[in-house]
């Protein structure tokens, strides 16, 4: 006899008595807090948005920083343009995240539910990538402007040139810059791998399992 048939026969017989909960026992259960991964994912994404917003706004809270920006060699228009752009992107991501969360439905099919959760996670991932790329580009850009426009830097470069150490100067500066970006980026990347790796490991495994054989 088919093993599963035997199991089914037993299963259907209801030989096991389950604890029968009364309505009075069910009511308090409705008030308990959920500990689902969607909830954790939601808190993490809020945390991430806040983290990057604070990181972007932090410098402007201090007078010295504001002065530094005022004296900056970049044009003000450019600076405001970048700031407005940043906030437009932040609001765009908030909107996309909101929409993605709204589309997560526990009454969806198993595959559909997994896909909507993974889609939400993807939006957060794009947001982080955007921040890293944008941050990196901004660092490189300010670095170039500093070199091109700052008279003090030009003087120093001229000094190195007369000393015949120009190549060393460039190598170390660019090397340091790349190293800095890599360390920062790597750190953030590791951090995300850790958070989402732990949170979504099981989901990813199950999703793969479900997708197997699917054409």
């Amino acid at each position: 006899m088919d093993e599963l048939e035997l199991l089914k026969k037993d299963w259907q017989k209801d030989t096991v008595t389950y604890p029968k909960l009364s309505a009075n026992e069910i009511y308090p259960m409705l008030l308990k807090k959920s500990s689902s991964i969607v909830k954790s994912l939601f808190y993490i994404s809020i945390g991430e948005l806040l983290f990057w917003i604070i990181l972007n706004s932090f410098p402007f809270l201090f007078d010295s920083y504001r002065e530094a920006f005022d004296n900056m060699l970049m044009s003000k228009a450019f600076f405001y343009g970048v700031t407005i752009f940043t906030y437009v992107i932040i609001f765009l991501f908030i909107y996309l995240l909101y929409k993605a969360y709204k589309s997560i439905s526990v009454a969806d099919s198993t595959k559909g539910l997994m896909e909507s959760i993974l889609k939400t996670r993807k939006i957060i991932k794009y947001y982080v990538i955007y921040n890293l790329v944008f941050g990196g580009a901004l660092i490189i850009f300010s670095f170039i402007i500093e070199i091109v426009k700052n008279p003090k830097v030009s003087e120093q470069i001229a000094q190195f040139e007369t000393d015949g150490k120009l190549a060393i100067f460039w190598a170390t500066t660019i090397g340091m810059l790349i190293l800095g970006i890599l360390i920062f980026g790597g750190f953030i990347w590791l951090f995300y791998r850790l958070i989402y790796g732990i949170l979504l490991k099981r989901l990813n495994q199950n999703y793969k399992e479900l997708k197997k054989l699917e054409v």
Partner: peptide, 18 residues
């Protein structure tokens, strides 16, 4: 039928083992 979906989805996807 609706319960089957929600129940299985919770067990497979949403539930974080406490």
């Amino acid at each position: 039928t609706w319960m089957y979906r929600v129940g299985l989805n919770t067990a497979i996807t949403l539930y974080r083992k406490g």
